[in-house]
């Protein structure tokens, strides 16, 4: 049940195909697929626990020991990551594929200076690459870089720490950047600035960005395309504008309908729908949204809908798509 790609795969900087992850015998991510082109921002949205972060960790090949990849393939440009040696994978991290985290202050070593941590991404001592690091600080919008470069994370605000994380991630000019809820922990006013910065740098450097978020407002603001996840599966993917205009999956439709105005989305926007998200242990056969779906029928409970094309560049996993 490989998802058909609606786009030319050679364009993709990162392609995830049928990725499955499990803890013991429990599937937590089930054959998900998506791809991102250079300079493009793909938003991965979904409720808490649907498997966004573990997907990011799987792409980085930094899964916790408890979680195994049980299937699928991840390709970075022309390289398949799945069969890469640990050593080769390590060489790619930071250089070809980088990541930023939800809580910038805890993702930085509190005892090491900002400059030293940025230099590590270049695998050089700070003294040798100081000018380059300083330039990167300027690019991520940190004022007074000559002072900041020797400061410790606790001397910086949360927003500045996230700028430092972006500097660490982008200084080696990776092809792909994964940002796991990069603004959730920040003040609302700072959030927009950080997102704008990400957007601009990705465009300038032709970096492919996978932006993980809860927030439909963020998706609307900066994502070129969106992949909506539900309970460990991709429900729907496509260009943001098209998905927002005519959602095909009933889940997406409900999500968007429950948001009064896209500009001020409450954080719990995704929890407004009646009923509860199933836990990984309760993922059975059939569509996982069936318990909450207004359009569901017998077939939905018995069979698993595969991700298939509905329209121009869009894929949906539903037997009875909205408007279809």
């Amino acid at each position: 049940m490989t998802a058909l790609s609606v786009r030319d795969l050679s364009l993709a900087a990162l392609a995830v195909r049928d990725l499955s992850l499990a803890i013991g015998r429990t599937n937590i991510v089930d054959a998900i697929s998506f791809d991102v082109a250079p300079g493009e921002v793909l938003a991965l949205v979904g409720e808490s626990g649907c498997g966004k972060s573990v997907t990011a960790q799987a792409i980085m090949r930094l899964l916790p020991a408890a979680i195994r990849q049980t299937g699928g393939e991840i390709t970075l440009g022309a390289t398949s990551l799945s069969n890469l040696s640990a050593r080769a994978m390590r060489d790619l991290r930071g250089r070809q594929i980088a990541m930023i985290f939800q809580e910038p202050q805890s993702a930085l070593d509190p005892l090491a200076t900002v400059g030293n941590q940025i230099a590590e991404a270049l695998r050089q001592p700070l003294a040798r690459v100081r000018a380059e690091v300083r330039q990167m600080l300027v690019e991520v919008g940190i004022s007074d870089p000559d002072r900041r470069i020797d400061q410790h994370p606790f001397e910086l605000s949360g927003g500045m720490c996230q700028r430092v994380m972006i500097a660490i991630a982008l200084i080696a000019r990776p092809a792909v950047l994964i940002a796991d809820e990069p603004t959730t922990a920040l003040d609302v006013t700072i959030q927009a600035q950080i997102l704008a910065l990400l957007r601009r740098l990705a465009a300038e450097r032709q970096t492919a960005v996978v932006l993980i978020t809860h927030d439909m407002g963020v998706v609307a603001d900066i994502a070129d395309r969106v992949a909506v996840m539900y309970a460990g599966r991709v429900a729907e993917t496509g260009p943001t504008a098209a998905v927002f205009a005519t959602p095909a999956h009933p889940y997406t439709a409900l999500l968007l309908a429950s948001i009064p105005r896209l500009s001020d989305v409450p954080k719990s926007a995704l929890a407004v729908i009646d009923g509860q998200v199933p836990q990984p242990a309760d993922y059975g056969t059939g569509c996982r949204f069936a318990g909450r779906c207004p359009r569901g029928d017998r077939r939905c409970v018995a069979e698993t809908p595969a991700l298939g094309p509905v329209a121009d560049g869009r894929l949906v996993a539903c037997f009875h798509p909205v408007g279809g």
């Binding site: 960790q57 980085m60 930094l62 390590r90 060489d91 790619l92 991290r93 930071g94 250089r95 980088a98 990541m99 985290f101 809580e103 805890s106 993702a107 930085l108 070593d109 509190p110 590590e120 991404a121 695998r123 994380m165 660490i168 991630a169 080696a172």
Partner: peptide
């Protein structure tokens, strides 16, 4: 987190 972040930068 900084352990994961360190590994993520190579």
């Amino acid at each position: 987190d900084y352990v994961a972040a360190g590994r993520a930068r190579g």
